[in-house]
Each structure stands twice: as structure tokens, then as C-alpha cells.
């Protein structure tokens, strides 16, 4: 009976894993098949001939690398913006007492409840007023507006976990407020900062709607909209190129995640104060 149950659970888990993983695996396999093999019926599971011609074409004949660079700049700048502003904001929300602090925190979260479609037109008009239309900067600002509220709340809860005594001790030991923040609070906040950074980076990397509306020239288009407009037209979808582009779009996320994941689970805060 117990073995059966164990088997059942295992089966269930593996079915879930396959369901989630299948499109990804299919994406990789498709990107490696030559054009002739692509639409064969019945389909081949493993490519009969493995080819990298799509990747080559993508890198040499299309503006893929420009889009890629735009996406990297966009997601990185947004992440830096959000983490810096979020950490300072969370510090203020947790450590200082001022009128309307809680209301402010709630309002910030409330902005997160508004659908982006509602915000996009006003935001576009504002960008035009600021002279930022059709620039990466406009996208950085837009992405910051929707990533910051969540980051603020995430970092706030992490900040609440940092004992105030630690900061007091640093002040007594001769550190300035900024010094205490840098020497003592930031290292404690590292897991929170990494989670926030990861969240923001992924959000910004995958964002489509704002990129579609705010930016419309190849020089500043990020990957999401760039790949779509380049490879999908009304008459034809370049499946093999699209799959190759998708694989290359996913790679940075996988690398970033794999690198930072170990930091997330490590117990940084242990031993700070007697529990």
C-alpha cells in the first residue's frame, strides 16, 4: 500500500514536470532541426540532423544582437534602479517614524493593483512630455514604476528582520548612519536584495506591453517585441528562427538564476542575535 502511494506521488510529480518541461524541450529540439525536418508528419522526436544554421542566421543576418544588448541594458538598469530605491525606501519605512508612513506603504502597494493597460497611455504621454519617447530610458522608467512597489514591500519585510540593535551597535561603535547601513544592514539584507533583483530582472526581461507601446524603432527595441516584429508577420512565422531566438532569450535568465539561487537559500541572518 505504502509503495503504491509512493509510486502514485512520483508518477504525479513526473507528469507535472513533463508538462512544464515539454514546451521547453520542444523549443530546443525545434531550434536544432533543419528547415526540411520541421514540418514533417509524423514529427521526428530527436532531430535526424542537428544543425546550428538558425542560430548562425539569427546572429549574422538579423538585428537580434542589438535587441539582446537593449534587453540586457534595460533589465540591468531597471534592476539597479529598483534595488537601490527599494532598499533606501524600505529602510525609511522600517526605521523612521513619520506621519502617514503606513498609509504611504499601503498606497504604494495600491498602485500595483492597477492594470498596466490603464497606466500605459498616461505614461506614454508623460514620456513624450519628458522628451523620452522612443528611448531605452523611457522603458527603464516604466519598468521601474511597476517593479518598485513590489520590491519595496519585499525589501521591507526583509528589513524588518534585521534587528535594530545591530544598527545601534554600529552607531555606538562609531559608524555614521550611512556607514552602519553599508557595513551592517546591507550584508544582512543580501538575500532580500538578491530575491528582489532576480524578480525585477525577470520581470523587465520578459515585459512586452510597455515595450510595444513606448518604443518603436529597431535601435532601442528589446528582445520581446524585437523578435516578435522581426519573425512574425501576417503571412509567415519563421518557426526555426523563432525557436532559436527563444532559446537564446532564456539563456541569460537560466544563467542568472542558477548563479544566484545558492545565495537565496543560504542562511545569512543566523547568529545575529540570540533568538
Amino acid at each position: 500500500m505504502r509503495i503504491l502511494r509512493k509510486l502514485g506521488f512520483n508518477l504525479f510529480t513526473w507528469i507535472l514536470v513533463l508538462l512544464v518541461a515539454f514546451p521547453l524541450v520542444w523549443m530546443i529540439l525545434t531550434s536544432l532541426k533543419p528547415q526540411t525536418e520541421l514540418f514533417r508528419i509524423p514529427p521526428t522526436w530527436l532531430p535526424e540532423t542537428v544543425t546550428f544554421e538558425h542560430y548562425w542566421r539569427l546572429l549574422t543576418e538579423t538585428p537580434f544582437l542589438i535587441y539582446f544588448r537593449n534587453s540586457v541594458v534595460l533589465a540591468t538598469t531597471t534592476t539597479v534602479f529598483v534595488v537601490v530605491l527599494g532598499a533606501i525606501g524600505a529602510y525609511s519605512l522600517v526605521r523612521f517614524a513619520y506621519r502617514g508612513r503606513e498609509t504611504l506603504a499601503t498606497l504604494v502597494l495600491f498602485t500595483y493593483l492597477l492594470p498596466s493597460v490603464v497606466l500605459i497611455i498616461p505614461l506614454y504621454l508623460m514620456m513624450v512630455e519628458l522628451g523620452l519617447s522612443n528611448t531605452l530610458a523611457s522603458l527603464v522608467l516604466a519598468h521601474t514604476t511597476f517593479a518598485l512597489p513590489y520590491a519595496l514591500w519585499l525589501l521591507r519585510s526583509f528589513m524588518e528582520g534585521v534587528p535594530e540593535d545591530l544598527e545601534s551597535a554600529a552607531l555606538v561603535d562609531g559608524a555614521s548612519r550611512m556607514g552602519a547601513f553599508r557595513d551592517v544592514i546591507l550584508p544582512q539584507l543580501l538575500p532580500g536584495i538578491i530575491s528582489t533583483a532576480l524578480f525585477t530582472f525577470i520581470l523587465s526581461w520578459n515585459e512586452y506591453l510597455y515595450a510595444l507601446v513606448l518604443v518603436n524603432s529597431d535601435a532601442v527595441r528589446p528582445l520581446t517585441t524585437g523578435v516578435m516584429t522581426m519573425l512574425i508577420s501576417a503571412f509567415n512565422i519563421e518557426w526555426s528562427l523563432l525557436m532559436a531566438a527563444s532559446v537564446m532569450m532564456s539563456l541569460p535568465l537560466i544563467v542568472v538564476f542558477a548563479f544566484l539561487q545558492s545565495y537565496l537559500t543560504r542562511g545569512f541572518g543566523a547568529g545575529a542575535v540570540k533568538g
Partner: peptide, 29 residues
Amino acid sequence: APGKRDIAMVFQSYALYPHMTVAQNIAYP
């Protein structure tokens, strides 16, 4: 400011800096 009063304080929670070694903790002031 606290750091300029020439005082030292021991906290109930000890407030040791968790990411520093014992030597670094003691050397911090």
C-alpha cells in the same frame, strides 16, 4: 552622535555582526 561620545555599549541581544568573524567584530570600533 553616539560614535563621538566615547562610550561603549553591550546589548541584551549582544548585537554581534553576523557576517563578520569574532576578530572582525572586535576590531570594528
